[in-house]
Design a protein around this nucleic acid. Structure first.
Lengths: 333, 333
DNA sequence: CCCGGGCGTGTAATCGATTTCCTGACTCGC
DNA sequence: GCGAGTCAGGAAATCGATTACACGCCCGGG
């Protein structure tokens, strides 16, 4: 592969001049064209590795995602990648699979590769490397999940408005015994969603007692199904269930069907995260839609601010309610 | 961040010695420990960028995936990433979103970054950069999709056995008018699947006439839905439909439901690609499962063979049929 | 006693770019 | 016609590692 020296030779100039032409500095018309011709003839492309070494900027960002197979995070990762690329950055994605060890593993190699900035939707809260990265001065932005003790801006969605609307929606449909399938302890957003929902229900005089708030052991369908099983076995089973994550909602739906019950006539079901195939379920699922694409874009922008050395605040974007048919209402989309 | 010179100074040796200790060559016990102590005290980690420049190996692979949002490819990308990491390589993932332009864009930046090898599940067949990469000598392996005119091993699944079993399954259930929703022209695997299925059906004396093989304009639900619409409007509508991709199957299911018809009583539905949530649909979908994880691993192994300069053959792994309830049979899982 | 072979380690070249410093030519004004 | 200012472009340092080569030391054999 041709390097800058080959180009310089062919154009009859020094490497400095070639570099200047390619980076849009000084050189004059005549020289400029000779250099560009040589570049074209040799098919020269600057070596990003050498450039990174010299400039101390790799133009690469790292993204460590808690679970890439979860469609919400797939979409998020895709949004981040697109926006990063639009702004001239490559993205190295690491999937932690909800394991702190793998997460730390990824962060370490990313730091070794001298990425310009790091985006993390943390699995668990006890990540040593995360703290180390922050302390080492690597620009860091948290995504979707805050981590106590790590001083970095966090970009995530917030469900107040959507959950308020949901409470009203359920109240209007006469649902009086709501329940929540909460994300496992250690994922802060789960509790927040529970409390916001509880407060919103209270405004309609509807209670959400502790026994109708079940924490799932994991963020997968099986965990959601287990909680739903316990909920339906209650002496007074719920008539509406909110799952704070899309995969747990799927498992919950399985349990309802396995008992020969129906959504929404026997129990209403609402999920957090509006993933594409919710619209293809039967019935189409009502969901609290996070602004996934906007989150990804905001995360990249916030991170690049920090890469440039500027301060950047946390970002909270509102989620919105997408009403479909899983609460008993006719679809609106 | 500490560099090798700092470590050398602190340990009272030369940089060469530090490098040798870290790469497991010669140095003797005493020196060795002093160096390791200095490394630990300074928290030194070698700069992968500098190392890559010097050794001409980045220990990074590139993966350009045709559509990351398609769950089949998400799983595939995840499998590739895990295996690559297990073998000491980082992975830069680029999502082409089924666009040749974006794909070429990605390939170009990956080449600029001097990745050691490139894995591509090509969107379309007319990629100029793909040919350029192959010609430039970058180790290249195709994934899931062959590209005519590009000389590179291809790792993909092959459905003969599964489709043979499927034909028997449908025949046994008395389905006589099968149809296929084929991937758009330009994705070679679509036609192959159609022909294998047709041949398998013929063995049972069942015909698959051209009007019951509809090509979808894209690999998304809407495309599948359009084809299903045409199929159901035929004077003799099919009693079993195979979609050669998971997203098209979803759209097809939508159309069936929209007409008030039922799966499997009115029409059986089978999808290619067994993605996790097929089991959560109602009814759970019978599917031709590609060995996704094995494909990802084989792709990485094949690519690394080529990176080492060895020849590597194409890999064809058999898909298998996962019978659920969408053809009228009781579930087997 | 001296010479040669091994072995541990240091010096310096190298990878491919960017960038600082400097030189030389040209222009312009007095 | 000559000094000052401008500007294009070259030489060389630099980023942080790896590694070829050389050197010095120790040991054993003749």
């Amino acid at each position: 592969m041709a390097n800058i020296k080959d180009v310089a030779e062919r154009a009859g100039v020094s490497v400095a001049t070639v570099s200047r032409v390619l980076n849009g500095r000084s050189p004059v018309a005549g020289t400029r064209e000779r250099v560009l011709a040589a570049v074209a003839e040799l098919g020269y492309r600057p070596d990003a590795v050498a450039r990174a070494l010299r400039t101390a900027r790799t133009r690469t960002l790292g993204l460590v995602i808690s679970d890439l197979r979860n469609p919400f995070f797939t979409e998020l990762a895709d949004a981040v990648e697109q926006e990063a690329r639009r702004l001239g950055y490559s993205l190295i994605i690491g999937n932690a699979g909800e394991s702190t060890r793998q997460q730390d593993d990824h962060i370490r190699t990313l730091l070794d590769r001298r990425i310009d900035g790091l985006l993390v939707s943390s699995a668990g809260t006890g990540s040593a490397m995360l703290r180390e990265a922050a302390d080492a001065g690597t620009p860091l932005v948290l995504l979707d999940r805050t981590v106590p003790g790590v001083a970095a801006p966090c970009v995530r969605a917030e469900g107040r408005a959507a959950l308020t609307e949901l409470a009203a929606h359920l109240a209007a449909l006469g649902r009086r015994r709501p329940a929540v399938i909460v994300a496992p302890a250690g994922t802060p957003v789960g509790d927040e969603r529970l409390e916001l929902f509880r407060a919103a229900l209270a405004a309609h005089g509807i209670a959400l007692p502790p026994e109708r708030a079940g924490a799932s052991p994991d963020l997968r369908p099986e965990g959601g199904r287990q909680v739903m099983r316990r909920l339906l076995d209650l002496p007074e089973p719920p008539d509406a269930v909110l799952a704070t994550d899309n995969l747990m909602a799927l498992g919950a739906l399985d349990e309802v069907r396995a008992r020969g019950l129906r959504v929404p006539s026997d129990v209403a079901l609402v999920a957090f995260d509006d993933v594409a195939w919710f619209a293809h379920l039967d019935p189409p699922l009502t969901a609290v839609a996070q602004p996934t694409r906007a989150l990804g874009e905001a995360a990249v922008h916030t991170l690049l601010e920090r890469v440039e050395g500027r301060e950047a605040p946390s970002v909270l974007l509102p989620a919105r309610l997408v009403k479909r048919r899983s609460c008993g209402e006719p679809a609106t989309d």
